[in-house]
């Protein structure tokens, strides 16, 4: 879902970029002097995993592939603000080192795939998680958070294309949401699978009662 340059007009790119810069600045402020020293490597590993997993495009339907976003997964494991920083670092490196996503569209890509997935995905997970302490409820919450994070990203991406005058609403919205509904299912399955692995090897990180956060 990385938007290349040429799809968005300048106003839309600048507006999306301004929102992303604001959220990333707030995330840095929220975590300032709060990251536990022993949790520093977890930030790095979360980003390393997201970057590696995003290289693995899996086929979905009819000549279309998708890949993990990972924003909801990282938010569930490390908290929403840490996830914003992790996703931003991944997207910035993908953009400037690997030419994946346009430099002018970077703010929009951070908004669609990083900020939204981290904050909305976390909000959904936390809201459903409050209903019950059962682990099965948490897995269900995580699956839904991951699926909705992908759909929200696809929705925002469509809106940016519409506002830019690139394509008409009635054609782009069903097309984008349709394909990402399937990609989102795989996102949900990978998210649940990754959480299951973490719960076996590091139950202190997940499923801890309090979302692990990187802070103490």
């Amino acid at each position: 879902m990385h938007i290349p340059d040429g799809f968005l007009d300048l106003q839309t790119s600048v507006a999306a970029g301004a929102i992303s810069v604001g959220v990333v600045a707030y995330a840095s402020y929220a975590l300032r002097k709060r990251v536990a020293p022993e949790k520093i490597p977890l930030l790095g590993v979360a980003g390393a995993f997201v970057f590696a997993a995003q290289m693995i495009n899996f086929p979905v339907v009819g000549g279309t592939s998708g890949h993990l976003l990972g924003a909801a997964l990282v938010a569930i494991l490390l908290g929403p603000w840490a996830a914003v920083l992790v996703m931003t670092a991944v997207l910035v490196i993908q953009c400037f080192i690997f030419q994946d996503g346009g430099a002018l569209a970077l703010g929009a890509n951070v908004l669609n795939m990083g900020v939204t997935g981290a904050l909305l995905g976390y909000a959904i997970y936390a809201t459903i998680g409050k209903l019950s302490q059962r682990v099965s409820v948490r897995y269900t919450a995580a699956f839904l958070a991951a699926w909705i994070a992908v759909m929200a990203g696809a929705f925002l991406c469509s809106c940016e294309l519409i506002i830019s005058g690139t394509v008409a609403l009635q054609v782009v919205l069903p097309a984008m949401l349709g394909v990402h509904a399937l990609i989102g299912v795989v996102e949900g399955v990978i998210t649940v699978g990754a959480l299951a692995l973490v719960s076996r090897s590091r139950p202190d990180i997940w499923p801890a009662l309090q979302p692990a956060e990187v802070t103490q």
Partner: peptide, 23 residues
């Protein structure tokens, strides 16, 4: 966890689908 990520990046990535992504 870092080794797992490196293995994914090194060994699985050449096998990734080359079909266009959703967008």
């Amino acid at each position: 966890a870092l080794i797992v990520s490196l293995v994914i990046a090194a060994i699985l990535s050449p096998l990734a689908s080359s079909w266009p992504d959703g967008l």
